[in-house]
Write a protein that binds this DNA or RNA. Structure first.
Lengths: 201, 201
DNA sequence: TTGCAAAGCGGACCGACGGTCCGTATCTTT
DNA sequence: AAAGATACGGACCGTCGGTCCGCTTTGCAA
């Protein structure tokens, strides 16, 4: 006898305490990463303790450290991804490349400025390169397709990689955090740079 | 009574066995990092064992893991740094920026292609960002000063950061290693990109 | 050549961390 | 209410970077 509901999602409703603990863990992790200087300073035990649960619960809920951070990251990134995939211009689809490319990069820069601790934690957590993360692939493809509409660009794929590299979390952290560059100044610098890549005046 | 020689260098000649062991350790580490898939797979004990010395010797000689890798890196980078600081054009000083900037970045790209394992090991080793490494500062300053001679560039400092980001080790690894992009094709793509940044209309 | 400190050696040892396990407690369903 | 399923939690484990200290080697000097 099959009690499984017919909708394709094979996910069963989590138990109430499980859901509550998961939320507590996310909140605790977010808070801890926000306060600390270096993401590496926060241990998994710290997170579990701060959430008031055992370590087993933490690992049961998320699997491993990387997945925990990825879950945090995904939650914060979701509004931006929504704005990009079905929001109004200049981020949403249907915007001419000459406006959309700078807008995308500016949004990404702002996101990294606003969530430095998270992005640093994510890039520092995985032992494997950030380029294998699924969300990088999405952003690259998005930027590549936008760049494809810019006249005179020989290789939108490489250009997309290079532009995304200019807003990498640790570079942003270096400029904004260590060297204390002002947020708006940084945005302006990036804007000038992007315009130059796109092709002048 | 002062037995210290008068020349300012307070470094005492290392003992013969120490020098031999240090060399053996460097060779062993280089070999191991070259063979492995992921730098993280090589432990300090592995290196010591491969060199035929104890772990204490390894840490006595280099201090910690990061320093070991940095020593390897510095040894390999030295010829390039020499070519840049007092070699002939197009790398050496006295080259017009329009030629020197592409040459520098191409040389850096080739270096990272040739020493992928080392650079990945270095960037992956330090828990702190690569931007705090001293050699990054040197390359940034070098590139910045070259870019200062390019007309119409609003902020050579940011541009230098952005261009250096385009040849970061893990991006190069992603393109050349994972996606299997051909070496010369990659160089060509980078060249086009750099020209575009340099040569706005 | 012999003596003797200083320098170096090496591997047992340590603390920390990510991750696992399983007896017990809690929830959900009938 | 009873039973089965699910989750809890913290003791536990393997590994790794790094330290410590008794023993050996080296190089200087008499």
């Amino acid at each position: 006898m099959e009690t499984e509901p017919v909708d394709g999602t094979s996910a069963r409703r989590p138990r109430k305490d499980a859901a509550r603990n998961r939320a507590a863990l996310l909140a605790a992790a977010d808070d801890l990463f926000a306060r600390c200087d270096t993401p590496g300073d926060i241990t998994m035990s710290d997170v579990a303790a701060a959430a008031g649960v055992g370590k087993g619960t933490l690992f049961r809920a998320f699997g491993d450290r990387t997945a925990l951070i990825a879950a945090l990251y995904a939650a914060r990134l979701e509004p931006l991804e929504a704005a990009v995939s079905h929001g109004p211009p200049p981020l949403g689809p249907g915007t001419p490349p000459a406006q959309r490319v700078p807008a995308l990069l500016d949004a990404l820069l702002c996101f990294k400025l606003d969530h430095r601790h998270l992005v640093l934690a994510l890039e520092g957590a995985g032992s494997d390169s950030p380029y294998r993360a699924e969300h990088y692939g999405r952003w690259h493809e998005l930027l590549r397709s936008a760049l494809a509409g810019v006249p005179g660009l020989a290789d939108p794929g490489f250009t997309a990689h290079a532009l995304l590299a200019a807003v990498r979390a640790d570079l942003v952290e270096h400029l904004a955090g260590d060297r204390g560059t002002d947020r708006d100044e940084l945005r302006a610098r990036l804007g000038e740079y992007v315009e130059r890549v796109l092709g002048g005046p």
